[in-house]
C-alpha cells in the first residue's frame, strides 16, 4: 500500500509543531532549545576559550568543537551513557554543518565548545540539534554570516515527506523497509548546503525533488529561528 496519508495526519511538506527558545541554560555563554514535535534537543555554547592540547590549535581561526549526546532515557531502549560510534559521527557532521556559518577568524587558537543534548527522541534528533545549536551560537554572541536551518526529508512508500518520525523511518511495504532518510542543513540566505546524508534508496530525480522540498521547509524554519532570537529580550 503506498503511503498516501501520513500517520499523524500532517501534509507531506509539513513539519511537526516547532517550539524553540534561547537562554535555557543560565550557566552557558549561549543556549537554546529546539523541538520538532516530541523530538527535543537543547544546545549550550561555552567560549571562545584557548584550546588545549596546544597541537589542536589553529593560529588562523577559532575551532568549533561539538559533542552530541542523548539522555539514556530519551529513547525507548535505554542508551548507554557515553559516546557511541553514532554520536561521534553526528557530532562531527554537526560541526561541519555549522562551521561554514561561523566567522571565528578573530579568535585564533581558541575553541568554541558546543554541547547538544537530546532530551527526547522521535527521529530527527541531529536536525533538531543543529537548529538548537545554530540558535545557541548566535545567542553566544559569536560572529556568523547566517543561521543554519536543518530538517530531515525523505521518501516513504514513494512519497517525499519532511521531518520524518520514528514510525515513518520504520515504514515497511510488503515487509520490506521502504524509507529513505535525508538529513539536510542549509544556510538559508545564500542557499548553500552544509549537511547532507542519506540512507535508503532513491532515484536522482526523486532526490532532486526531496532537496527542493527540504530547502523550502528550511526557509520556514529559518523564519522561526529569527523570530525566537528577535523576541528573546521580551521575556
Amino acid at each position: 500500500m503506498p503511503y498516501t496519508k501520513r500517520f499523524d495526519g500532517r501534509k507531506f511538506d509539513e513539519t511537526r509543531k516547532i517550539e524553540a527558545e534561547v537562554g535555557v541554560i543560565p550557566n552557558a555563554d549561549g543556549s537554546a532549545m529546539f523541538c520538532f514535535g516530541d523530538t527535543k534537543a537543547i544546545a549550550a555554547v561555552y567560549g571562545p576559550r584557548t584550546l588545549y592540547p596546544q597541537h589542536l590549535q589553529d593560529p588562523t581561526r577559532g575551532r568549533l568543537k561539538c559533542i552530541y549526546d542523548m539522555l539514556s532515557f530519551s529513547v525507548t531502549e535505554r542508551k548507554r551513557p557515553g559516546p557511541s560510534r553514532r554520536s561521534i559521527e553526528i557530532s562531527m557532521v554537526t560541526e561541519k554543518a555549522l562551521n561554514p556559518a561561523l566567522k571565528l577568524e578573530k579568535f585564533p587558537n581558541s575553541a568554541v565548545n558546543l554541547y547538544i543534548m537530546v532530551i527526547q527522541a522521535n527521529a530527527g534528533t541531529r536536525t533538531a540539534g543543529i537548529n538548537a545549536a545554530s540558535l545557541a551560537l548566535a545567542h553566544a554572541g559569536l560572529p556568523m554570516t547566517d543561521l543554519v536551518s536543518s530538517v530531515s526529508v525523505g521518501k516513504i512508500g514513494g512519497k517525499i515527506c519532511v521531518d520524518l518520525t520514528k514510525d515513518e523511518e520504520d515504514y515497511k511495504e510488503k515487509d520490506e523497509k521502504d524509507t529513505t532518510d535525508i538529513p539536510f542543513a542549509i544556510m538559508p540566505r545564500n542557499g548553500k548546503v552544509t549537511l547532507l546524508q542519506l540512507d535508503g534508496k532513491i532515484t536522482s530525480k526523486e532526490l532532486k525533488e526531496a532537496l527542493q522540498t527540504a530547502k523550502k521547509v528550511c526557509n520556514q524554519i529559518y523564519e522561526v529561528q529569527k523570530k525566537v532570537l528577535q523576541e528573546a529580550l521580551n521575556k
Binding site: I25, N27, A28, A44, D69, P81, Y115
Partner: peptide, 18 residues
C-alpha cells in the same frame, strides 16, 4: 544509578566518562 555531570551544565565540567 548513574550520574552525568554534563559539560552542558557548567563551564567547569569536562566531557568524558563520569
Amino acid at each position: 544509578v548513574g550520574v552525568e555531570l554534563s559539560p552542558l551544565s557548567s563551564p567547569d565540567f569536562e566531557p568524558g566518562p563520569p
